[in-house]
Nucleic acid binder design. Structure first.
Lengths: 199, 199
DNA sequence: TGAAAACGTTAACAAAAGATAAGGATTTTA
DNA sequence: TAAAATCCTTATCTTTTGTTAACGTTTTCA
């Protein structure tokens, strides 16, 4: 995808949070940069500060922790979604997990440094503050649902819900990653799938 | 606690997010209101839009869902913390859970309407945008940790961690609420406590 | 293209958690 | 202050999950 198309996708993707008129867009876009990840390449690794907030124009990534030498996948992001090691990016602290491309992935990026400059730019500050606020609020709502699922639902119920709301994910992501995401082991997910099929 | 003392506590409590000089504080405070909850009184109920974002100056509340007629407690907030049915407050949608006082509780509140007015107030807008952004970012970091705990840790590990970081909660909150918060049944938590004591 | 790696399923067993009920202690409240 | 409600623990039984290993299939990649 060429940069122009990526910018278009980005503009469209963030329209739910904030819209720029053409004049503002012209000021805004020079603060953006572009990058891509080949399959299995890492965007973020444990112990390093994450300097970018990204919008995925193509591809998919997984977020995972390493615990006792084992990888545990906690989340995924796909095209037209935002991606970052958010906590590390916001707090400027070493990241505690990994973000790895599951497919060939293309990104539009905002560096932390550029973000700060925009927050000091008289013509952008208010809009960027709002942008940041609305993104954060959006993610809080997602997190709220995710925590609620862990507290109120059994693994099987979480699986059934996922199968209902995002069936396609099973065609795209290896099942053992999804198992981790649901908070169970791959073996257990395999059993749940068999169980729920028979019913 | 008198209103002046509550305002002081509020000012101090939000200083981690934003600080007001005395002139700004004078403009800001008229947008605040006060309330209190007696024990067991509800601040928010399922099906109603939550109109307030609060700061707890005294007391404690629990957040719970009702599933199959049963209450499941998902979270707590204590004095010097913020409290709201965040998702409902932000999206103006009916709330999906309950918030109930566990003790006599006192609140400093910002109504959604007043918040919007401040966001349109030339002298407050930028600071309030930032306030909102930083609050949201703060909660995202909390949620990130909480989700990570569910994905990477066993119930026993979550209990041990809680016992390490917030031992006092066991003196203050009925244990079966804490069990829900950890994502397990009260019976199971009782067993875990016995198990970990013997080791 | 051929060896190696990755992946999903299944089995067997152990460990943990859920469900239900009972009992005793404490707290609430009328 | 007496009855009711709440709370924690314990026991029993059932269900689910974790662990480990094996097997066949598919995918990867040198």
């Amino acid at each position: 995808m060429d940069k122009q198309a990526q910018l278009e996708a980005f503009r469209k993707g963030i329209a739910q949070f904030v819209t720029f008129n053409d004049a503002e867009w012209k000021i805004f876009t020079p603060y953006l940069s572009f990058s891509s990840l080949s399959k299995k390449e890492h965007f973020a690794v444990e112990g390093k500060v994450c300097h970018y907030m990204c919008f995925i124009t193509r591809g998919a990534v997984r977020y995972y922790h390493i615990k006792d030498g084992q990888e545990i996948t906690g989340y995924f992001s796909f095209e037209n979604e935002l991606m970052s090691a958010y906590k590390s990016f916001l707090k400027r602290t070493p990241n505690t997990n990994y973000i790895q491309a599951l497919e060939e992935t293309e990104l539009v990026m905002i560096s932390h440094q550029n973000l700060q400059q925009m927050l000091n730019h008289p013509l952008l500050a208010l809009k960027i503050e709002r942008f940041g606020r609305l993104i954060a609020e959006y993610y809080i709502c997602c997190y709220e649902d995710r925590v609620t699922a862990f507290v109120t639902q059994s693994p099987e119920e979480r699986y059934t819900a996922l199968e209902k709301t995002a069936k396609d994910i099973f065609q795209r992501i290896p099942q053992h990653f999804i198992a981790n995401f649901l908070g169970i082991t791959p073996v257990s997910l395999s059993r749940i799938r068999k169980r729920t099929l028979l019913q």
